[in-house]
C-alpha cells in the first residue's frame, strides 16, 4: 500500500499548528500518524450500509439556552492575565497578513 502520509504532510500540518519539529520528530510522528490512519482504514472497511451517519457521539441535539444576558467578568481581572495591555485592550505583536 502506498504511504498514506508523508513527512511533507506532517511538516505542513506542523507549520499550520505553529509547531517546530526536528527531523527525527518528523519521522517519528509520520510513523505514528500512519498507524492511526491504518486503524481508520480498518474501521472504514466495515460494512456500515445500514448504519445512519452520526454527527456526534452523544445522542443529543438542540441543546440551547435562552437569549438572556448574564454578567460578564471583570475587565481588570481579564486584562491582568494578559502578557501586555494598552488602552483597556490586549496588546499583541504585529502580524503580517489578514484575518480570514
Amino acid at each position: 500500500m502506498a504511504a498514506r502520509i508523508t513527512t511533507d504532510d506532517v511538516a505542513h500540518v506542523a507549520r499550520l499548528a505553529r509547531l517546530e519539529l526536528t527531523d527525527e520528530e518528523l519521522v517519528l510522528y509520520t510513523e505514528q500518524l500512519a498507524g492511526i490512519l491504518a486503524h481508520a482504514d480498518d474501521v472504514a472497511s466495515l460494512d456500515t450500509a445500514g448504519v445512519p451517519a452520526t454527527a456526534h457521539p452523544l445522542p443529543l441535539q438542540n441543546v440551547l439556552r435562552d437569549d438572556v444576558v448574564r454578567p460578564s467578568i471583570d475587565r481588570d481581572e481579564v486584562l491582568a492575565a494578559a502578557p501586555a495591555v494598552e488602552d483597556r485592550r490586549f496588546r499583541v505583536p504585529a502580524i503580517l497578513g489578514e484575518a480570514p
Partner: peptide, 24 residues
C-alpha cells in the same frame, strides 16, 4: 439582533467599553 452572543450570555452590544462583554 440577539441580546446575547451566540455561545455565551455576554451582551451583544455595539460601542461598549472595550473588553467589558467578555467571559471564559
Amino acid at each position: 439582533a440577539t441580546n446575547t452572543k451566540i455561545f455565551c450570555g455576554c451582551a451583544n452590544s455595539f460601542g461598549d467599553e472595550p473588553n467589558t462583554n467578555v467571559c471564559p
